[in-house]
Design a protein around this nucleic acid. Structure first.
Length: 579
RNA sequence: GCGCCGGUAGCUCAGUGGACAGAGCAUCGGAUUUCUAAUCCGACGGUCGCAGGUUCGAGUCCUGCCCGGCGUGCCA
């Protein structure tokens, strides 16, 4: 996409004690369009030039020669406001979007670099619940965002299929289950686990039994292994159904158990380097010098812990992918774990340990209807809201709405598919629109709302844009004249579209999909206002008498549509053409 | 106790150290012979947790405190 700011920054750099790139970052868009198209705040130069910001702005306005494409410099207090040749610059901008399509928004800042992203990574033998949503969709969205920045992405589902809890599950199965492993489903497994947890509260010996069973499993006991394999198979089958609904994919399913064979060698090396040592019959990595509690790597019964397997996984990923970034999309409650992990890797002498990044997010809490207090749901107690139920509810609600407006759809519309795109879109968007590290209290109504700042609102704007393009009945040409876009709303739209690529960069840098979601809301709000003008004043409609104005407006509509479609894609959502 | 995260309108949240702190929901009032009303327009609503400090300028940075959450060796 053409970069107007860059051009301006280049010409300003010759007259200021700063690099062009810094000036580009400094350039803003003035609050009112009458002030100009860009503004350079001059505060930062005051010290170096020993003049007041206002004076600097004034001097610059007087002395700068006007490069090609720039119409005017004028000082307004401490700001140097800049007006460009709007018709030329912005016709070019919109034209390039129409000509090239959505790819124009991508950049190549990550070209030749690999980013490994670990997301979703649920534990097996449990249903996916609402709180599993965040890692999955934030992770997948980051995958899409990095891809749009030219990175080679590896999406990994680091399935939680190993650990003491599976020893407990095996014990529970042997103790209570009346179904054969072949006939069991995830609900059976989860119920067994809950029952076992409850009983062990009164009968602590069961905890030991669970640990013993895990030891058997880790030692390769054939019976235990057979059960575990079956549990895993059942779980993955169910997970895949939900992933399909969510449109989430992975490049690799490499579960925790995959790294078990590497653990012994790792522990030996850690001991040899004096990073790991015996303590209370267990093996720990002491991190006191780093002001952290020790990281436990082997329990007193000789079995491994997730930290052990995570270290192996990190090494494995480095050897196989040579990543620029290795991102773990995991809840904030595991912050300490990842700090410890990085520190141990650093102690091992790996300079790539700096590339390990824990991208944390806030907890999802459930509100207790009685006390009104929000707290984290517990699988052990069985109080959780199934992800599938939430998605199904969303789909149902969308279907009702679609049936009300059935005449708006095409004859061959696939109602179920469309309802899924919208209903699930609502759920995903409600989560993606909030900044990662905020805790979220689950709320059916908010998650399934289709009005206001929601996913369906964005999708609806897209459908309207598509409708205009269909009804216009002419091709959108990339060479229309932007000078014909005279309404303030049109102008604001152009300016908002202009900054879209920079939002993608920001979203990638901050690992923050909500930047895209909030940007889309602003864009759609603006478009909807613009669109509504045409209700009372037909001459303000896109499809209008004047063919030249029509051409310019269609270019704007097409560009807006492309931005929305692209943005929704980055969020992992669909952009229906009718709804 | 210590560490980390959060505290902005009644509720849910935006807000690269910069021009007047913004949305959505809720409430109230308006707009539909439509380029799709899943929409739009208006009204109402603020000690940006508190107190200092840095700065030409602080919701944003620093320090202390208050409130809430999470974590803190045999779970993941």
């Amino acid at each position: 996409m053409i970069e107007i700011k860059k051009q301006i920054a280049d010409s300003l750099a010759e007259h200021l004690p700063a690099e062009s790139e810094n000036i580009e970052n400094l350039l803003q868009i003035p609050p009112e369009p009458e002030m100009g198209d860009y503004a350079l705040p001059c505060f930062v130069f005051a010290k170096k030039l020993k003049k007041s910001p206002a004076k600097i702005a004034e001097k610059l306005a007087e002395n700068l020669s006007k490069p090609d494409g720039i119409n005017e410099f004028h000082a307004e207090g401490p700001y140097l406001n800049i007006s460009v040749d709007r018709p030329r610059m912005y016709s070019k901008l919109l034209g390039s979007i129409v000509k090239t399509g959505k790819e124009v928004f991508s950049n190549d800042s990550g070209k030749g670099k690999t980013v490994v992203i670990d997301y979703s990574s649920p534990n097996i033998a449990k249903h996916l619940a609402v709180h599993h949503l965040r890692s999955a969709i934030i992770g997948r969205s980051l995958y899409n965002i990095f891809q749009a920045c030219g990175y080679h992405c590896i999406g990994i589902n680091h399935l939680g299929d190993w650990g003491t809890s599976f020893g407990k599950l095996i014990a529970a199965f042997e103790r209570y289950s009346d179904v054969s492993p072949q006939d069991a489903d995830v609900s059976d497994l989860q119920n067994l686990y809950v029952r076992f947890s409850k009983e062990s509260e009164e009968n602590p010996e069961l905890e030991d039994l669970g640990r013993r069973k895990f030891k058997e499993l880790e030692n390769g006991d054939p019976e235990a292994t057979k059960l575990w394999k079956q549990f895993k198979k059942i779980s993955i089958e169910e997970f895949k159904k939900i992933y399909e609904l969510l449109g989430i994919e992975f490049d690799a399913y490499t579960p925790e158990s995959f790294y078990l064979s590497l653990a012994e060698d790792l522990l030996n090396r850690l001991r040899a380097k004096d990073i790991a040592m015996e303590s209370e019959n267990a093996v720990i990595a002491d991190l006191e010098e780093q002001d952290m509690p020790p990281l436990m790597l082997q329990k007193n019964d000789g079995t491994t812990l997730y930290a052990t397997r995570d270290l192996c996984a990190a090494e494995y990923r480095w050897i196989n992918y040579r990543f620029e970034h290795c991102i773990y999309v995991v809840g904030g409650e595991q912050k300490l774990h990842f700090r410890q992990l990085k520190t141990v890797l650093k102690k091992m002498g790996y300079d790539w340990s700096d590339r390990i990044e824990h991208i944390d997010f806030g907890l999802l809490k459930l509100r207790d209807p009685k006390t009104g207090k929000a707290s984290v749901g517990s699988t052990r107690k069985g109080d959780m809201i199934l992800l599938e139920d939430v998605l199904k509810n969303g789909i149902e609600r969308a279907k009702e709405k679609l049936n009300e407006n059935i005449e708006k759809l095409s004859d061959d519309a696939d109602l179920d598919k469309l309802a899924a795109r919208i209903g699930i879109g609502a759920v995903m968007f409600s989560d993606l629109a909030v900044k990662r590290n905020k805790d979220v209290v689950f709320d059916w109504d908010r998650m399934l709302d289709f009005h206001g700042d929601t996913g369906p609102y964005v999708q609806y704007a897209h459908a309207r844009l598509c409708s205009i393009l269909r009804k216009a009945g002419v091709d959108v040409r990339p060479n229309a004249d932007c000078a014909l876009l005279k309404l303030p709303e049109e102008w604001k739209l152009v300016r908002l579209i202009e900054i879209y690529p920079s939002r993608i960069m920001q979203a990638a840098e901050k690992r923050e999909p909500s930047i895209i979601a909030n940007y889309l809301l602003n864009l759609c709000k603006l478009f909807s206002s613009y669109y509504s003008l045409g209700m009372k004043e037909p001459e303000k409609r896109v499809i209008c008498e004047d063919q030249h104005v029509l051409g310019a407006r269609l270019m704007l509509v097409e560009a807006t549509k492309n931005v929305i479609a692209h943005g929704l894609e980055l969020l992992g959502m669909n952009a229906p053409e009718r709804m």
